[in-house]
């Protein structure tokens, strides 16, 4: 039996007295695309941020390649080399060009020399369709372009897993498509992705697994056809119908 790439077990996280994650478990194999859905405040971002330890957990276990990564002796920077992240509001380095955004990590963290990092960086920009914008600064890019640079920046570290926290929800509707398309390409290439997103298009066409999180608990999970067509829990059904209603008005 192969061991899962990511394995989360009985994860608890509280902010003060408020328990935000109440015993969450999740497994992903290499190449999986898991889409995390759930109402606002259900703990989706928190769960993602626990995986790369931008947020520290209270108890439970998170293992990458079978190695527990939650211990005090885990080097968080080693962990983050393996786990990339794409942010809702991009957070591109404002003082650097698109190419420099992509090469900063490889140069400063992976110790690549400048020429290699640039060559690789151009490839990653090409992968997201932005080679021509290599010398543009973030403020000169559209939202969709910024997010694609954000994706290239994460890929440039050659991670084993990429976390996406609502990558399209800060975008104007007409720009969502270009980002979704890039993400779908990555899924096809076998990049392992844990994605918080309510982009149904993406979830249906790219996800191997949908996970519904509500109130800090995983209510149910399953392949997209099953979860979207025949949800077993009432809570899931209610959430999905609200989501559909919202999609139709949008």
């Amino acid at each position: 039996m192969t061991q899962p790439l990511l394995s989360i077990d009985d994860l608890h996280k509280s902010y003060g007295s408020e328990e935000v994650l109440e015993g969450v478990g999740l497994e992903m194999d290499q190449g999986d695309v898991t889409v995390l859905i759930g109402p606002s405040g259900s703990g989706k971002s928190t769960l993602l941020r626990c995986v790369n330890r931008l947020t520290e957990i209270n108890s439970g276990r998170i293992a990458l390649d079978g190695q527990d990564v939650t211990g005090a002796d885990t080097d968080v920077n080693e962990l983050r080399k393996q786990v990339g992240m794409v942010f809702q509001d991009f957070n591109l380095f404002a003082h650097l060009t698109a190419l420099e955004n992509v090469t900063l990590g490889p140069k400063k963290v992976l110790g690549m020399d400048a020429a290699d990092a640039e060559a690789a960086g151009r490839n990653h920009l090409e992968q997201v369709g932005l080679l021509e914008q290599a010398d543009s600064y973030p403020a000169e890019l559209s939202g969709g372009q910024k997010q694609r640079v954000g994706i290239a920046r994460a890929l440039a570290m050659d991670p084993e897993l990429v976390l996406f926290d609502e990558p399209t929800s800060a975008l104007d509707p007409e720009l969502v498509g270009e980002v979704v398309e890039v993400m779908r390409d990555l899924a096809d290439e076998g990049i392992t992705m844990l994605v918080v997103s309510h982009e149904m298009d993406f979830a249906r066409s790219a996800a191997s697994d949908i996970v519904f999180l509500d109130d800090g608990e995983i209510v149910e999970h399953g392949p997209p056809e099953q979860l979207f067509q025949n949800p077993t829990a009432d809570r899931t059904e209610q959430f999905l119908s609200r989501l559909h209603a919202h999609e139709e008005t949008a």
């Binding site: 920077n77 990339g84 942010f87 994460a154």
Partner: peptide
């Protein structure tokens, strides 16, 4: 978010401050 994004590409806190926050 700038510091956080730098940490997310595995920079130490010091590197993140030095290469991302300080220049700005």
């Amino acid at each position: 978010g700038q510091l956080e994004a730098a940490r997310a590409v595995a920079m130490s806190r010091f590197e993140a401050i030095r290469h991302v926050v300080v220049p700005q």
